[in-house]
């Protein structure tokens, strides 16, 4: 898949004066739809920008993960008509650049690539993914709910990007991760960066590494969860959890969706649509004749935690949580996956 781009240049580095960043973005906007973090009511949301000044690259986290532009919250798959059959509606292939994506979210996209791109490729996802370039940004700021450091997904990124930015104050260190990334830098005057800049980068990242407030011990997770299927914490969570589904709606690695046919009133034509679904919702595991495999709230809470931390690995070779902390921040009840695991681990 697209993520497996080969590198022709050994880790090339360039320096971009911060004042020239908008020039780079302006240049990208001529060829691509640029989607990046934009301020929204005190939070941030990945949005298609019309002006480089809209980008707020000092953001900590976004409301929804950038996943939303690859696997959209709502999506029309195709139209159908009784006489004409299925009418495919593929979107035009204008490329897009995901700009300022944090390492946790890049890792999450790599997980989605495995879920949607490998065994049973999802044409809608794959089509968008192949037309998407990733300009990632290492984290020099750490949010209260972040624990990517524990998950090995941040605050810095090693792969999975076309370009990687690190804020060094007045300048931005740009690392090129692919030929396509190198191509993005054409027509922008850049200085080759001396290797010593990597030392400066490490200094900034080390500062970030010291700021993490949350951690999750990932050793022996599968065994820990298997041994604690009947732990009293699940019943406490059953009483606490509102079953609202927010934790899964904001998760960058959740990939479940529901498919609904929306008929027109003539009952002859309509659209097949899909939208994000969630295992935290009661109706998710309901089958024909009304039986529900996960009727109890604690069963659904367990499914969410076990899927991310125990069931993903055998299937995808990686944990299903990237430590972005969105599920913690969105929870009215402050239910915290790091607290749950610490308690199970006897901490």
């Amino acid at each position: 898949m697209v993520v497996a781009r080969s590198l022709t240049i050994p880790n090339p580095l360039v320096l971009l004066p911060k004042k020239d960043l908008s020039r780079l973005v302006q240049h990208l906007m001529q060829r691509y739809t640029v989607v990046g973090p934009v301020a929204k009511g005190g939070e941030h949301a990945f949005s298609a920008i019309t002006d480089p000044a809209q980008l707020t690259l000092d953001y900590v986290s976004s409301l929804l993960p950038p996943k939303k532009v690859l696997h959209q919250p709502f999506e029309v798959l195709f139209s159908f008509h009784q006489e004409q059959g299925v009418l495919e509606e593929r979107e035009p292939a204008r490329g897009q650049v995901l700009f300022g994506v944090h390492p946790c979210d890049v890792h999450a996209i790599e997980i989605l690539d495995k879920a949607y791109g490998h065994e049973y490729p999802d044409p809608y996802y794959v089509n968008r993914r192949q037309n998407t370039l990733i300009v990632a940004a290492n984290c020099t700021k750490v949010g209260d709910n972040c624990f990517c450091q524990s998950m090995g997904t941040g605050p810095d990124l090693q792969k999975g990007y076309d370009l990687l930015l690190t804020d060094l104050g007045s300048q931005i260190l740009v690392e090129i991760g692919s030929p396509a990334g190198e191509d993005l830098l054409q027509q922008v005057p850049l200085q080759p960066a001396p290797r010593v800049m990597l030392v400066e980068k490490e200094k900034r990242l080390d500062e970030a590494r010291r700021k993490f407030k949350k951690r999750l011990n990932t050793s022996g997770l599968k065994e820990l969860l298997e041994d604690n299927f009947r732990h009293p914490i699940w019943d406490e969570l059953r009483q606490d959890c509102l079953a609202c589904g927010s934790c899964t709606m904001v998760c960058p690695t959740c990939f479940c969706y529901n498919v609904v046919d929306k008929l027109d009133l003539n009952l002859k034509s309509g659209q097949r649509q899909r939208e994000w679904d969630s295992c935290m919702l009661l109706e998710y595991a309901q089958v024909a004749m009304g039986h529900n495999f996960r009727k109890d709230r604690d069963a659904r809470i367990k499914q969410r935690i076990y899927h991310k931390l125990a069931y993903y690995e055998p299937q995808f070779g990686t944990l299903g949580c990237v430590g972005c902390g969105r599920c913690i921040g969105t929870c009215v009840k402050h239910i915290d996956i790091t607290d749950i695991m610490a308690r199970l681990g006897g901490e």
Binding site: K40, G245, S246, L281, T330
Partner: peptide, 17 residues
């Protein structure tokens, strides 16, 4: 399901949290 689901799908800022 809950209103939260539709609220998140619209990427609203959560008024509660």
């Amino acid at each position: 399901h809950s209103v939260c689901v539709e609220c998140k799908l619209r990427e609203n800022v959560c008024l509660f949290v």
